[in-house]
Design a protein around this nucleic acid. Structure first.
Length: 898
RNA sequence: GGGGGGUUAGCUCAGCGGUAGAGCGCCUGCUUUACACGCAGGUGGUCGCAGGUUCGAUCCCUGCACCCCCCACCA
């Protein structure tokens, strides 16, 4: 034990071996609170002491989380800080509760997103990635990745995240890449991965396929064009409606509904494709054509529309690709070849209009945009790899139905089911360079081999060399394995055996489908176990009710916020803002509020430590005679501790933060500290009372620090260090759970009554417009609800006199000349010698009016026999008591008014 | 087209069967020797609108209005 700690903690379990006892270096807290002066120091103390690594025997109770790996695209924003704060609160709380905690850090290569960042960077230097070549480009991405990872890591350390950095992973680490390859091969062998030519969502700017989820649909004002096609033998031809007229160049049929009388005359005929002149059949298709919609005739463009593609399959139609992967018209588009698709649209519309074949009307429809670059998505016929998802979805649905996995808040369950039950196959190939290369190899004879090891020759024909597929996998293909790939799976490593499955997954609801659902499917399919038992889906951070955006200038950079308010304040703000809703509103004002709270705690600690320094402080309070305020604050403390634990169990970080906040500020600081000042200073009470108060104060401070530690780790550790001398051990000290032992309703009743009396005395002064120091006479007489109360309060007379500045306090029936009222059921009288005014009168009138109104309402209730008969007896009784109270108060106030 | 969420004090949000809470703001006082990033007191709400259920509704149900989000092969 280092010398001169101000306090020794009670019930310790923390080892002190590594206490960095700094000798005589100030055990006192500096007068001003400067978070920047100690935050980073504590982080390295914890980290170097191995506090973030799980300790204890494998098999003993543990709590495991994996971080949602941030993209290595840049730096973290306040939304990341929010999610990580929640996780760190859980990690620190569980650690202090004595379970082995492991929280695994890492980053995601984020294929398309990162590639785009690099492409933009290159573009600034006037370089196109194609000039650079695949290998050189990827080298550059790796360099970028290393830098981004360091930035992200530093940010999370600044925030205080107790992540086990010895286990940090990256989705493209060799072992994680092996897991990806293993999974691909396995699914391929199981027939759950297939390759084929289909119409997929294609981004012409990124020049890659994307999945359905990566397409953002937005309502857009456009036009609905009607184009007339000539049909031999039908005078007015056939008119089709389309929003994408440029695709008509690729039409290979028109379709009608077999039972639509409007189009019967077109049955079996042939139409002439305008501009192109191609003869195309008019087919009947009840699936594609809606009898109720439009003109009843649909153009069929198998290469540029998923529905049309399916129709083409049904009717064996050719597919003509007229828009290329780069968004420009192909040679098949004839005279339009080389034009951008939108320019082609313009020209074709002009041409058809001139020909008298086209009319248009304003039309609003939903247009798909690339999630990453916002380019309009083009349905595009191409060769891609897909995961057959239904067989994987089924067990994943069951796991949630059966409660193996539960969502918090529970309301997400329905959304999850909704999506899972309507799930489509997943396009996993991306025409990118950055990512996991698809392990498929083609021999000169066209045989495809998919295997975990690179084959040297074709297993079918012995042909060589083999050429690997140039595509990479969707980034989520590797992220879905994260909860087990981080532990070295598919090897059965000690970490995998010890820490999988994990316990809680915390993430934003925006990646429920992208990530959470796929982890559940992959986890169940490959490990046979749900990857986690609880998914906490939190809301997305908004700044002052508005979506964060750079153009609005309301972005909060976590590091800037930390520099301004301190990491603890930022964390506390985020935790307090957490709610079960879809948005989490953060405001600068709340950051300042949290900073103020940190300062408050700092000053309370300064006061406490200076009051205790040099005195004996009993660590054990059992068997000691405690004053009413002592008993009261211990009771409130244990209540606060119980509430904090309860709320954390329910993922209500806002409520948990609120519980400890109001205890520390409004009960410990505003009330208890003020109550014990005269005792501590020696002006009141016995030596024994003084010693007890010191013990209680010490307990309150240490327990408050512990309760707050998950929320404000740095500040609490700093104070703890000064208070106990046990450097850096709060992080592993026991978390208060709130022993029922200290639950003391009786003390609470008396002290709350005293506080109510004091408040009444103070606002009486306010009403009279006299100074807060003006002496007041107070009479207190027993009231009806608790005849003992006056006597109980009499026992703490000095307390009441001190706090209320009441030189003359009499436990007698107040004289008629005094101002009369009823407070906490006690009949009281007040008198001030020198009232500056009688302005209290108006207020009394107002109060009386309020009382009258409430009285009327309640007595009407009591007169209502069905209320008295049907309402629970306790409610009726409560109402009756309240009426009595109102009556007494009304009598007192109107009697004392003269 | 389907689904979900929201509408509570000037602002940002909690609460969700027994006539409303927090933080910030605002008003009035305070060098009450831990803290002005403070202390004390106070102001402020027909809990979106209309019905219904109930002894009783901000809270449950129905409808409406406005807002937000998600899903969807809306030619």
């Amino acid at each position: 034990m280092p010398e001169n700690p101000v306090l020794s903690e009670s019930g310790d379990s923390a080892d002190s071996a590594d206490s960095a006892a700094s000798g005589e270096s100030a055990r006192k807290l500096p007068k001003t609170f400067e978070p920047g002066s100690f935050e980073e120091r504590w982080y390295s103390v914890w980290e170097s002491a191995g506090r973030f690594q799980p300790t204890g025997a494998p098999g003993s109770p543990r709590f495991v989380m994996v971080i949602p790996p941030p993209n290595v695209t840049g730096k973290l924003h306040i939304g990341h800080a929010y999610g990580r704060t929640i996780e760190d609160i859980l990690a620190r709380w569980k650690r202090m509760l004595g379970v082995r905690v492991l929280w695994v850090p890492g980053t995601d290569h984020a294929g398309i997103a990162t590639q785009m960042v690099l492409e933009r960077q290159l573009a600034k230097q006037g370089i196109d990635r194609r000039e650079l070549g695949r290998e050189k480009f990827i080298e550059r991405v790796w360099a970028w990745k290393r830098e981004a990872k360091d930035t992200i890591q530093a940010q999370m350390k600044r925030l205080g995240c107790s992540l086990d950095w010895t286990r940090e992973r990256f989705t493209m680490d060799p072992d994680l890449s092996r897991a990806v390859r293993h999974v691909f091969v396995k699914l391929y062998e199981e027939g759950l991965i297939y390759r084929g030519r289909y119409v997929v969502n294609w981004c012409p700017r990124c020049e890659t396929a994307v999945s359905d989820l990566e397409v953002i649909h937005r309502e857009t004002d456009g036009s609905l064009y009607k184009i007339r096609y000539d049909v031999a033998g039908v005078a007015d031809g056939a008119t089709v409606a389309t929003t994408r007229p440029e695709t008509m160049l690729g039409d290979t049929a028109l379709a009608i509904h077999p039972d639509d009388p409007r189009t019967t005359r077109l049955t079996g005929r042939t139409a002439t494709l305008p501009i192109v002149g191609r003869q195309i059949p008019i087919i009947q298709d009840a699936i594609l054509v809606n009898r109720e919609f439009g003109t009843g005739v649909v153009k069929v463009t198998p290469a540029h529309d998923a529905n049309d593609f399916a129709t083409g399959q049904r009717h064996d139609l050719p597919a003509v690709v007229v828009i290329g992967g780069n968004g420009r018209m192909t040679a098949q588009a004839g005279e339009y070849a080389g034009l951008d698709r939108f320019e082609a649209r313009k020209q074709i519309v002009a041409r058809l209009t001139a020909d008298g074949r086209l009319t248009s009307e304003p039309y609003r429809n939903s247009v798909g945009h690339c999630q990453r670059c916002d380019t309009v998505i083009e349905p595009y016929l191409s060769e891609q790899w897909f995961v057959k998802i239904a067989p994987l979805a089924e067990p994943a649905i069951r796991a949630v139905e059966e409660g193996t996995i539960k969502f918090v808040p529970e309301s997400w369950t329905k959304t999850y089911f909704e999506w899972m039950r309507n799930i489509h196959d997943w396009c996993i190939s991306r025409q990118l360079w950055w990512g996991h290369r698809i392990p498929a190899f083609t021999c000169p004879n066209g045989h495809v081999t998919v295997s975990e090891e690179d084959p040297s020759a074709c297993p079918d024909c012995g042909g060589a060399p083999l050429v690997q597929d140039t595509d990479v996998l969707d980034t989520w293909f590797s992220s879905q394995l994260w909860p087990f790939s981080v532990f070295g799976w598919p090897e059965r490593t000690p970490d995998f055996l010890d820490f999988y499955p994990t316990d809680v997954l915390v993430t934003g609801y925006d990646i429920l489908f992208f990530w959470v659902a796929r982890m559940i499917m992959a986890g169940l399919h490959f490990t046979g176990q749900a990857p986690f038992s609880t998914v906490h889906l939190h809301g997305l951070v908004r700044i002052g009710g508005e979506k964060m955006s750079k153009t609005k200038g309301n972005v909060i950079d976590p590091l800037e916020a930390i520099a301004e308010f301190g990491a603890d304040a930022v964390r506390f703000t985020l935790a307090s803002a957490a709610s079960s809703g879809a948005t989490v509103s953060v405001e600068r004002g709340r950051m300042a509020g949290s900073r103020n709270f940190a300062t408050k705690l700092w000053n309370a600690a300064r006061f406490t430590l200076s009051s205790l320094e040099g005195h004996s402080v009993p660590a054990d309070l059992e068997g000691r005679a405690l004053s009413l305020p002592d008993r009261w604050i211990l009771s409130r403390l244990s209540g606060a501790a119980r509430n904090v634990n309860r709320h954390l169990n329910e993922f209500r970080f806002d409520e948990a933060a609120g519980a400890i906040y109001s205890f520390v500020w409004h009960e410990l600081c505003d009330a208890y500290l003020e109550m014990v000042k005269p005792v501590l200073s020696g002006r009141e009470g016995t030596d024994e009372a003084r010693e007890s108060a010191r013990g209680v104060l010490s307990r309150c401070l240490l327990d408050s620090l512990a309760l707050l530690h998950p929320f404000m780790p740095f500040l609490t550790e700093e104070i703890w260090d000064k208070a106990t001398g046990r450097s850096g051990t709060l992080i592993v000290s026991p978390f208060p759970t709130g022993e029922a032992l200290h639950n003391d309703p009786d003390a609470e009743h008396v002290i709350e009554s005293v506080r109510a009396l004091i408040t009444r005395v103070r606002n009486y002064r306010g009403e009279r417009g006299v100074s807060p120091t003006e002496p007041v006479e107070l009479w207190v007489a027993p009231g009806s609800p608790d005849p003992e109360l006056a006597a109980r309060i009499r026992a703490v007379t000095p307390l009441l006199q001190h706090l209320g500045r009441i030189p003359e306090l009499r436990f007698e029936v107040p004289p008629a000349s005094a101002f009369r009222d009823v407070v906490a059921g006690l009949s009281i009288g007040l008198r001030v010698k020198e009232a500056a005014s009688e302005s209290g009168g108006a207020r009394v009138e107002k109060v009386l009016a309020e009382i009258e109104q409430e009285y009327e309402g309640l007595s009407a209730k009591m007169r209502n026999s069905s209320f008295v008969d049907k309402a629970p007896a306790a409610i009726v009784e409560k109402t009756r008591r309240r009426l009595l109270e109102l009556e007494e108060r009304r009598a007192a106030l109107s009697g004392g008014r003269s």
